[in-house]
Amino acid sequence: MNNQEKSAPVTVGETYDVSIDDIAKQGDGIARVKGFVIFVPKTKVGDKVRIKVTKVLRKFAFAEKVE
């Protein structure tokens, strides 16, 4: 198990149902899973979406919206 897996409660390829509760400076929506920040492009505050994690870093992750 590497450090990424220990600190991140999400895994690449997994899907999660989340609420977008903030917007990043770049305009991506921000969701959280167990407090862990996930950036989700093409979303806005208040959206309730299903996401698929595409990349996990130490302090945050990226995901895409799943239709």
Rank of each mutant, 00 (worst) to 15 (best):
N2R: 05
N2V: 04
N2M: 04
N3H: 07
N3Y: 10
N3E: 11
E5D: 15
E5N: 14
K6T: 03
S7D: 05
A8P: 09
A8G: 05
A8W: 03
A8L: 04
P9G: 02
P9L: 02
V10N: 10
V10G: 12
T11Q: 11
V12W: 14
V12Q: 14
V12M: 15
G13C: 11
T15M: 14
T15W: 12
T15L: 13
T15Q: 15
T15A: 14
Y16S: 08
Y16Q: 09
Y16D: 06
Y16W: 13
D17Y: 11
D17A: 09
D17G: 03
V18M: 02
S19T: 13
I20V: 15
I20T: 08
I20W: 08
I20F: 08
D21E: 12
I23T: 11
A24R: 10
A24E: 11
A24W: 11
K25R: 12
K25H: 10
Q26E: 15
Q26M: 13
G29E: 01
G29C: 03
I30D: 01
I30N: 00
I30H: 02
A31S: 10
R32E: 04
R32N: 04
G35R: 03
G35W: 05
G35M: 05
F36M: 02
V37Q: 00
V37N: 03
V37E: 01
V37I: 09
I38T: 05
F39C: 00
F39Y: 07
F39S: 00
F39A: 00
V40P: 00
V40A: 01
P41D: 13
P41G: 15
K42I: 05
K42S: 13
K42M: 10
K42T: 07
T43K: 02
T43D: 05
K44D: 11
K44M: 12
V45G: 06
V45D: 10
G46D: 13
G46E: 13
K48N: 15
K48G: 12
V49P: 01
R50L: 13
R50Y: 09
I51L: 07
I51P: 05
I51R: 06
K52L: 02
K52W: 00
K52D: 01
V53A: 00
K55V: 14
V56G: 07
V56Q: 04
L57M: 14
L57F: 10
L57S: 13
R58K: 10
K59T: 06
K59H: 06
K59P: 00
K59W: 02
F60G: 03
F60W: 05
F60H: 08
A61P: 06
A61M: 08
F62S: 08
A63V: 00
E64I: 06
E64H: 05
K65Q: 03
K65S: 03
V66A: 15
V66I: 15
E67V: 13
E67S: 15
